[in-house]
């Protein structure tokens, strides 16, 4: 029960209070480029939830059992016990993400064509989405456990999903409004994002 409550509050925290997009600015590039279109936003949102939910725990395993100081002690080889490979963290994380995204793409292409049709084109974009690598680095920096990293990965993906879908619907309405020339497109989107992030700030009063 205690763990469940803990996981729930972690999820609420990473979806609303510390939204990865609106509080940490991660994943802005795809957010700005894709929020022009509601359907595409839903697609990339789902893809982010899916990939984040897998890569964060996977990177946790790699970090804990391969890279940390003394992480190799499970092999039982004495000379490996004191090895500290943590300087390789960044390269390992990004290669894991790139390889996994590639693998997932092939996998769902073969086994679930309908899922591939809705996620397929977004998966390659995800490799260079900062919110994926960012979530893994946050997981490492905050020292989450394995269970926490599953919850954190999935719920930061959900946070991204909510923000991008919200933005896409606002931009849909914006199409018919009269905006000054220089502000069209990126400019007005940034200001709208500012207002949206101000709205999300009101969650920060919640004590968990």
């Amino acid at each position: 029960m205690e763990t469940l409550v803990h996981f729930l509050s972690l999820a609420t925290k990473s979806i609303f209070i510390e939204n990865i997009l609106l509080a940490y600015f991660l994943g802005m590039c795809s957010f700005l480029a894709i929020s022009k279109n509601v359907e595409a936003s839903i697609g990339i949102g789902k893809a982010v939830i899916f990939v984040n939910g897998i890569t964060v725990p996977l990177n946790w395993l790699i970090k804990t059992y391969l890279l940390d100081q003394g992480a190799l002690s499970w092999t039982g080889i004495e000379s490996l016990v004191s090895v500290d490979l943590s300087f390789l963290t960044l390269i390992c994380f990004i290669s894991t993400i790139a390889a996994l995204v590639q693998f997932v793409e092939m996998f769902i292409d073969k086994f679930s064509p309908s899922l591939y049709n809705s996620l397929g084109i977004f998966l390659p974009l995800i490799t260079v989405n900062c919110s994926i690598l960012g979530a893994s680095i946050f997981m490492d920096e905050r020292g989450y456990t394995f269970g926490e990293s599953i919850v954190f990965g999935t719920s930061s993906g959900i946070g991204f999903f909510l923000a991008i879908v919200c933005m896409a619907t606002m931009r849909f309405k914006l199409r018919y409004s009269n905006i000054p020339d220089g502000l069209k497109g990126l400019g007005i989107t940034m200001i709208l994002t500012g207002l949206l992030s101000m709205a999300y700030l009101s969650f920060s009063g919640i004590q968990l």
Binding site: L22, F25, D181, G182, L183, G187, G194, L201
Partner: peptide
């Protein structure tokens, strides 16, 4: 906080794009 950053950048983009039309 975060909103300040978004709004300032939005205004700078407006300024830069007005100059380069």
């Amino acid at each position: 906080l975060a909103p300040g950053a978004f709004i300032i950048l939005g205004l700078i983009i407006w300024f830069q794009r007005s100059i380069t039309s």
